[in-house]
Design a protein around this nucleic acid. Structure first.
Lengths: 414, 414
DNA sequence: TTCTTTTTTTCGAGGCTCGAAAAAAAGAGC
DNA sequence: GCTCTTTTTTTCGAGCCTCGAAAAAAAGAA
């Protein structure tokens, strides 16, 4: 059952809230934080003083703060960029990108490489990641904060502890224990996350007014991925990474899907499915593993240009996604949807069929009110979401706990 | 954003936790509560003393507590049945049942009537409910606790505040403001809840070891209802009552559904759909509004007895439910499922087709591990869930807040 | 009757938040 | 340039809350 609230939890939670308020608002004053959190000025003052002394926050005295009002001017509080650093690694098909992020969320350095993920063996894949992170760290001056967290985003399914990659389209191998391997080398906590989930995290922090309570992010690429946020929290299922929108059933016993089953949404809306249909191949034809962007852009151009199999293929894709979303809306009520990835470049061809499908479902009653945000480039979102996720862990698990205070009270001088 | 934790919230939360622990465990001792909640013995002792003084808990000195061990015997704590009463009302097709429940969850009295809901006008429907509650209360001796809450369960869709019935198959009228009407008369807070959600609440309290984190309850009757519990909390969508499993899309542009759209799961698995198929009617035939139990039992018997359209109809139903569950499992990972209602009487005919369908979906990999609980009679579950829901409100909003203590501290003697 | 054992209560210490008051840091007015 | 006003931030004492240790209570065991 729920565990009791102990006395020290109180301070920990309120510290976390102050940090979160600063992260969200940018550079709020103590008074603003008090207003937002509902705590008293004196409490915020005390907590802020602690956090500043611990080097987590810093007073920002930029020349132009706000309109010079009468009265004592507000002192803006900001995250101290040197309080910590985190590493955000994005591993995708034939592509690997590691970034060092400071505590305020700014990128310090990147390391980008293009390992042939489909043909590498398991050990080499892990080695590629560690080598990339090593290069990244070697290049950095020591004046940045201590490295406290690493998050790895991969397409595919992870275990519920976010420690292993159970299955991924980028490699034939399964059950790769990335977190263990990386933790052993870099001696900091590591988690392995699904890429679409990280996109959702990024969108929430970028546009909280739109993406807050319930929303979906859908990644259109060779496969169809989904990030699912319910009640403001990432839903990742009870066993694996959940949210397998692409493998909801569209047509029972329908087209052959990459997953081995038939009729999944992905088997109509994934790049391979669109290509297959455009080429006039059978619905049972074996899915292609990797389709380059140029091919898909050419298909989209052809679909836009004239009637024919290409246009039909995108319409089928739109229909599959539309019925899928309709089912989601039946379950969760209409919620904001973000469509991410190269597939957005063909969205004008996809959208009419998609909306038509939605309007034929239970979610369709709000069809007009449903709007789709398009984000063509998923990479920056994934990287950003990864960083946010890692920073959130640092905030909650390390800085909110107030290690320094505890140590002083527990062992050292009074 | 999340609001700060204030000092008095602490006591309120811990009081709520003690009450919850007693409600869950039955008659735990103070020591057991301390162990379960992680709070110290002294804290539990203080809180328990307060709650006893306020008449919320009571020491239970039944002769046979537990095996007489050495040492000071544990004193069992129980909910004081007279601390409060709540009313649980279940309104379904041509049937209305109101129950008075004491604070310990035991039913004190019932009032059962059979109003013709399909033909009544809106005002009469509200009047039927108030009259039933009035009869119920009139019959009760005054020695029971004060009436503090009422919950009304109805099939259909409610608004997000649980105050109105937006749509229901039991009446042609819509937007019925039950909560306002009842609150005006009985001067206690009232909420209107979906029946399947209340089934989920009941199951969680009856078998928490099975139904805790994520689970689904599916009600098979003329329509198909669902209760959805995610992360231990009822999910009710952002706008309406959500969880419209029956209106997820099974076959795009398929059979005519009662909701006016086509291809919904319900259009294959609802009683009217099964009857329609068994009679050899077209998939486009208008759904029947009310089918009596005997007809459905006869269909099930026929299906069990010999091959033919009846059996085929139930198989189609199983397939629709199976693919729907497969999609759910793709989204949420496999989770316990409870099948409720008269439809369970035909479950032996439905199950093979259902399992076969699930095994052809992404959720199918765990097919063997998926077990279905059957609960033929939904009424006691709905009634019980309603009562639990009302009691939970009393626990959290009234008793945990400690009105008495506040009053004393705020205005009266010290 | 005395000793053990276990549960429950009591009591003082230490933390935390709050409100009120004080201090600080500006602009406004003359 | 000085004083007044306004707003933000800090300080301080009061009041709760939880905790651990010790005491009290309530049995069975010897």
């Amino acid at each position: 059952m729920t565990i009791g609230v102990r006395h020290d939890d109180l301070r920990r939670k309120n510290r976390a809230m102050v940090i979160a308020a600063v992260r969200r608002a940018g550079q709020p004053s103590r008074t603003e934080i008090a207003a937002v959190t509902g705590l008293s000025n004196s409490t915020i003052s005390t907590i802020a003083a602690d956090l500043i002394e611990e080097g987590i926050l810093a007073e920002v005295r930029s020349g132009e703060t706000i309109a010079a009002k009468r009265g004592r001017p507000q002192v803006a509080l900001g995250l101290n960029p040197r309080a910590a650093t985190v590493v955000s690694v994005v591993l995708s098909l034939n592509s690997l990108s590691a970034s060092l992020i400071d505590y305020s969320g700014r990128a310090i350095a990147h390391d980008i490489s293009r390992p042939p993920t489909l043909t590498m063996n398991e050990g080499d894949l892990v080695e590629a990641v560690t080598a990339s992170v090593r290069r990244l760290l070697a290049r950095v001056q020591p004046e940045h904060g201590p490295l406290l967290r690493m998050t790895l985003a991969v397409q595919g399914i992870t275990d519920s502890d976010a420690r292993k990659l159970l299955w991924s389209p980028i490699t034939p191998h399964s059950d790769i224990a990335f977190a263990d391997a990386l933790e052993a080398i870099f001696t900091i906590p590591v988690t392995v996350e699904n890429d679409c989930n990280m996109i959702a995290v990024a969108l929430r922090s970028r546009a909280p007014e739109r993406y807050s309570d319930n929303f979906f992010t859908i990644l259109l690429s060779n496969g169809i991925g989904m990030g699912l946020v319910l009640r403001g929290e990432l839903f990742t299922g009870s066993h694996s990474s959940g949210g397998e929108f692409g493998h909801m059933v569209h047509i029972p016993d329908g087209a052959q899907c990459r997953c081995g089953r038939r009729g999944c949404i992905e088997a109509y809306a994934g790049n391979y499915a669109i290509l297959r249909h455009a080429r006039g191949e059978s619905e049972r034809a074996q899915p292609a593993a990797d389709i380059d962007d140029a091919t898909m852009l050419a298909l989209a151009a052809a679909a836009r240009d004239h009637e024919g199999r290409e246009r039909e293929a995108f319409q089928k894709a739109g229909e599959a996604i539309g019925f899928g979303l309709g089912s989601l809306f039946a379950l969760f009520d209409p919620a904001p949807v973000a469509i991410v990835g190269l597939g957005t470049s063909a969205f004008d061809v996809i959208e009419p069929a998609m909306r038509d499908a939605i309007s034929r479902t239970a979610g369709g009653q709000h069809n007009a009110a449903i709007s789709f945000d398009l984000e063509p480039d998923e990479m920056p979102l994934i990287r950003d979401g990864c960083a946010r996720q890692a920073l959130a862990h640092v905030d909650l698990e390390i800085f909110a706990a107030g290690v320094l205070t505890t140590t002083i009270a527990g062992k050292e001088v009074a």
